[in-house]
Simulated scan of single mutants.
Amino acid sequence: MSAVKAGIAPLAIVFEDDGLVPNNPMPFLVYKGAVDVSKNPEATIERLFSDNGWGAMWRNGVYDYAHYHATVHEVLGVASGHARVQFGGAHGRVLVIAAGDVAILPAGTGHQCLSTSDDFCVVGAYPPGPPMDLQRPTPENHARALKTIPLVAVPATDPVMGKDGPLVQLWKR
């Protein structure tokens, strides 16, 4: 039985470059309540991401300072609890992500945790490619990121829905 709930479609948001956080012309995707995390939540999310070709996984939270990744895309699967996260930099959007939600961040998408429940836990993963980098929003990092972000390959699979998932259709160069 699939851990992904039937009939789930992602919310797609394009964040503009704000001069410090480059973001990406490809949409940030959020699947609300997509994953059944009622049993072994971390392992369920890890299996889903792995089955769909995303790896280099970790378990933790989301950093409480603004940052982005300029060389890799990232997926965050919420295993437990909830958090308020600022996505897209200072001019982006604050979203509440909760157990069962999955957020997919194209390279350059700003993110910062504003608050969490005590039991908040995220599983993060990356598509095949370069290792994760961590950039703070500075003019120098922004200038470098504008050169590296266009070079990041579009993943072959959506970490939630696989090779025919919405990411594959929505993320075009």
Rank of each mutant, 00 (worst) to 15 (best):
M1C: 03
M1W: 00
V4L: 11
K5G: 11
A9N: 10
P10D: 05
V14A: 06
V14T: 12
V14I: 13
F15K: 10
E16D: 12
D17T: 14
D18P: 09
G19P: 13
V21Q: 06
M26F: 02
M26P: 00
P27G: 10
L29R: 00
K32T: 09
A34Q: 10
V37A: 12
K39L: 03
K39R: 11
N40C: 06
L48K: 04
F49Y: 08
S50N: 09
N52R: 01
N52W: 00
W54S: 01
W58G: 15
N60Q: 08
G61P: 02
Y63L: 14
D64K: 14
D64M: 12
Y65K: 09
H67R: 13
Y68P: 06
T71Q: 02
V72C: 00
V75N: 01
G77S: 07
V78E: 02
A79K: 01
S80F: 02
G81P: 12
G81D: 04
G81A: 06
H82P: 00
Q86C: 03
G88D: 03
R93Q: 14
R93K: 13
V94Y: 12
A99D: 03
A99H: 13
I104D: 02
L105Q: 15
T109W: 04
G110Y: 01
H111N: 09
H111Y: 03
C113W: 00
T116S: 15
D119N: 12
V122Y: 00
Y126F: 03
P130K: 11
P131Q: 13
Q135A: 10
P137T: 04
N141T: 14
A143C: 01
A145H: 07
I149G: 02
I149E: 07
L151N: 04
A153R: 08
V154Y: 11
P155R: 06
T157W: 06
D158Y: 00
M161S: 09
K163N: 13
L167T: 02
